[in-house]
Design a protein around this nucleic acid. Structure first.
Lengths: 194, 194
DNA sequence: TGTGTAGGCCAACAAGCGTTGACATCCACC
DNA sequence: GGTGGATGTCAACGCTTGTTGGCCTACACA
């Protein structure tokens, strides 16, 4: 964001800051907000707990800094309307397999109101606009987006958090084959009525 | 379970025990495992924290006693195969609106490994058998049940825990109209292939 | 009526938590 | 070469947590 405007201060402590954020993401993802302790994060980053406080103020500040999520959703304009469901599923699967920030936010969003608020923000700032562009009647967009997010978050929940064995074992291709038509229907099919 | 066999000891403390369990369910549902403190539960039940320990040993024992879930799924035999999707959605919606034990378990299942194990047990002991009866090829039952549970738990997550406004606002009838065909497809439609 | 036991409360413990402030150490700049 | 701010360490704080043991009370049974 400030890479072109500000010439990057390049502090000497950047490595430490990054180590803290990396450790924080990992602990938050594995343990959730409450059980992820500052002490454990500091130990994993091989620094003193007080450094965390110096650089991020408090635990909430650390969480805010560690969990910044950009879903990198595709541009709705370049998205073929009939292919939106398929594109969404594969995109989410890739994002989720790659990094554990999403799992961290999911875990924290459930125990911590700040985390829940963050997830609501991501929903309305990133997913909703895309759905508004794709779906037929913009007025129905919120409901349709809610259905889509329900299914995708539920998949992440059973697969990466609760680890239902059948959900964890499913091959990404098979998930895509099942979910793509569903999401496509939620996005573009006519309202089924009452 | 022991109402007909054992003649019910009828201890004088039964009222207290029940007050503790009621309070525990409520606190676990609202706060999750870590933030639901024994002290808060005891205060809500208007007894001393030490009573909780006496009757349930420790916090894990209390949780185990408080969160016993019977989904009360319909008998697969009496379930018209073409109506299974619709029946499942309405059943889950009713269960979830009625009592907060399900929300409690969902919250706890995410932060606590004991809770997650409990949810896996419910999945395989209660949902899976039903799906095995309904779906065409029993070998596909685990995957199909995983898809169903993903969607239903995702709905509960966005509606009751994260409280995405559009998900919370959706009328049960509308949810049913959207989800019933999806679940029906997951249960009985031919495998979409890779 | 006396007594044993279950029910209940109170105070305290050890441990872990987030957080703080004082003190060393290092590097950049005048 | 000396100085000042950034970087890092250490010890401790106040608080909350789960958990424990001692003590009082009241009821059931003899």
């Amino acid at each position: 964001m400030n890479q072109s405007k500000a010439p990057a201060p390049a502090r000497r402590s950047d490595a430490t800051r990054r180590a803290i954020l990396d450790a924080a993401r990992e602990r938050f993802a594995a343990d959730g907000y409450e059980r992820a302790t500052i002490r454990a994060i500091a130990q994993q980053a091989q620094i003193d707990p007080s450094m965390v406080m110096r650089y991020y103020g408090n635990k909430e500040g650390l969480f805010a800094a560690a969990v910044a999520i950009d879903l990198q959703l595709p541009d709705p304009a370049s998205l073929p309307r009939d292919d939106a469901g398929h594109a969404l599923v594969t995109h989410f699967l890739h994002m989720w397999e790659d990094n554990d920030v999403l799992t961290a936010l999911l875990r924290v969003g459930i125990t911590n109101e700040t985390g829940a608020e963050r997830m609501r923000g991501i929903f309305s700032d990133q997913l909703l606009p895309l759905v508004e562009r794709v779906c037929p009647d913009p007025e129905q967009a919120p409901a349709r987006a809610a259905l889509v997010s329900s299914h995708l978050l539920g998949l992440a929940l059973t697969r990466y958090v609760l680890r239902f064995p059948p959900a964890s074992r499913l091959h990404p291709d098979e998930i895509t084959a099942w979910l793509a038509p569903t999401l496509q229907r939620y996005l573009t099919a006519p309202h089924p009525g009452r």
